[in-house]
Amino acid sequence: MRIAVTGANGDYGKLLLPRLEADPGVESILVLDTKEPPPMSKVEFHRVDLTRYDAEGELTDALTERPVDALFHLAFLFGPILNGPLAHELEVIGTMNVLTAVGRARLPRLVVPSLTATYGARGNNPALLREGSPLFGCPHSRFVNDKVEVEGQVRAFRERHPDTRTLVLRFAPLLGPSLDNPATRLLSHAVVPTLLGFDPLWQAVHEEDAGRALHLALRAEAAGEFNIVGRGVLPLSGLIRQAGAQPLPLPGPLFRGALRALGAVGAGTLPVALLDYMHYSWVADGERAESALGFVPLYHVRDAASALRRSQS
């Protein structure tokens, strides 16, 4: 089995590559990235910059030169970056290039990660969001809305290319010692501001579980979207406590204003959009991943959060 991976140097890539390396069924891994990944015996490196105008042609060449059995499109950001247009180029235009190349090369399998945050934290969410729920995104967050746009592209691609098995893994916030995303940054503070009077339910996936889910997608017989969540839920305050920090409830307007001001100065440590996720719950139902993908989370949210604490100390 020959696997192609984009964005192998990102968090997802770091979780997946060692597993593929250890998988005896995998002959070689074609890494399509701007940077060379850490050396591994099965890795073949092919430099591709997804943000360049000629990325699509390069990808098609690389994929058709030697046929691959699956492509993991992992070249995504894990949090908002200051350079919004670049993020948009990478995520939306990059995905467009990848999808076009995959269509041309007629790959049998495509795996794309996404986030449960794309459902949006809204007051009228049901208690548990199934995969069929509409993706409302987050009105103030370019980052989340880019993800929603990517999901739309992937869905359209899936409809046009039914012979390519397309899996979208919607991850709950990833927590783990080796990760760096808004959730882990939020929880790494000693005191975490929260919204006074609200304590939404949060989910999280331990990095081990996330790597396992990606690996499972390589052989799964199912297609479509899957919510990849850890076991159980925790209120945000509980998550913060589990991670070894203290919640500090602040009145909403004050908090929002402070975050805006910080963001305007450029010292924004927390994305303003995170406020929505501190206000309403966005609990995804991991039942489909369990039954169709065979993914059973090993870690409870508690464990994921306390793993974060262990990594800090």
Partner: peptide, 11 residues
């Protein structure tokens, strides 16, 4: 207030 931090919640 939002600082309870219970850890035995159901869905």
């Amino acid at each position: 207030l939002g600082t309870g931090g219970g850890s035995r919640l159901d869905d």
